[in-house]
Computed example of a mutant assay.
Amino acid sequence: MNELREWTATLCADLGLDDARDLDCAAVVAMARNVGRVVSNPAGPVTAFLVGMAVARGLSPADAAARLDELTRRWPRIDWRD
């Protein structure tokens, strides 16, 4: 068991959540990394938390991912080379 899987299983147990079999860690990490690059580094983990809240309130993970992808694509980017 790798460290991330061990951590998420332990955290889920401690928080009283069902085990994380359906958790796609790679997708969550990619989401946070992408938002961190497009918006700002602190926006990555905050976004992951907010998307998790939305899913917990009934939004499907696929819909949440699609909405986030669309919003990220529309977000204005700063070209630091100027």
Rank of each mutant, 00 (worst) to 15 (best):
E6S: 13
D18T: 14
W80R: 14
T10Y: 03
A27S: 12
T8I: 15
L15F: 05
V28G: 00
N34D: 15
V38A: 06
A65N: 01
L59N: 01
D14I: 06
N41E: 09
I78E: 07
P76T: 05
R74W: 02
V55T: 02
L50N: 07
R5S: 11
T10K: 13
A26G: 07
R33V: 07
V28H: 01
D22A: 15
A54D: 00
V38G: 04
G58H: 01
T72N: 04
P45G: 00
A48D: 03
T10Q: 13
E6C: 09
E70H: 11
D63M: 12
D69N: 13
D79C: 03
D79Q: 05
E70A: 13
P42Q: 00
R77N: 02
A56C: 09
A26H: 03
D18M: 09
N34L: 15
V46L: 05
V55M: 06
E70C: 08
R5C: 04
N41S: 09
G52H: 04
W75L: 12
C25Y: 11
A20T: 12
G16L: 05
E70D: 09
D24S: 13
W7S: 15
A54V: 01
D69A: 15
I78Y: 04
A54K: 00
R5D: 12
C25L: 15
L11C: 07
M31A: 11
N2M: 10
P76W: 08
L4W: 01
A64H: 06
L11F: 09
S40V: 12
A66F: 06
E6A: 13
T47A: 00
V28T: 03
R77T: 12
N41A: 13
A26D: 14
D63G: 09
V55Q: 03
